[in-house]
Amino acid sequence: MKRIVLDLDYCIGCRSCESACAARFQEERRIRYGLVEKRMGGDRFVMPLACRHCEDALCLKSCPFGVIRRDEETGVIFQSGFECIGCSSCILACPFGVIERNLLRHISQKCDLCRDRKEGPRCVDSCVSGALKYLSEEEVPKEKIGVRVISRSPYWRRVK
């Protein structure tokens, strides 16, 4: 079971992942360049937001027509764009806010980890700094993710 893992120490906010996703899905990007606002300090942080493919997926449970399904082999939660009626239940249910509405087709659009591609998700391959990684559960502890937090500089990912 492989998932997209974000190493914030490497993310430079170039939005290449978003661009790669948009190039494949034609106006229906499924990874988002999120702006996480921290009210107290006044700092704003930016990071890519992608579907976590939860074990207990709320979007899957909320879908009234069973359009969102789970791939039993890989655990990927995917959705059929043809069957979706655009009720937005999954958008409301998602606790991470990563499911977006397609305003042209009036359906919701959801990351499926590029199931059509053997090599893995396009966003991971296009990531210029290597911040996005496609790792299995066993590989995650081996990588130094979250170990090198740079907080020395006052300008750390601060958007002014």
């Binding site: 170039c14 290449s16 978003e18 661009s19 948009a22 190039a23 391959d125 296009s126 990531c127 210029v128």
Partner: peptide, 15 residues
């Protein structure tokens, strides 16, 4: 050379 990585400009070539 860049191990497959592409910046947003390169990714937008089809557009």
């Amino acid at each position: 050379l860049q191990e497959g990585r592409l910046c947003p400009k390169g990714n937008a070539i089809p557009f």
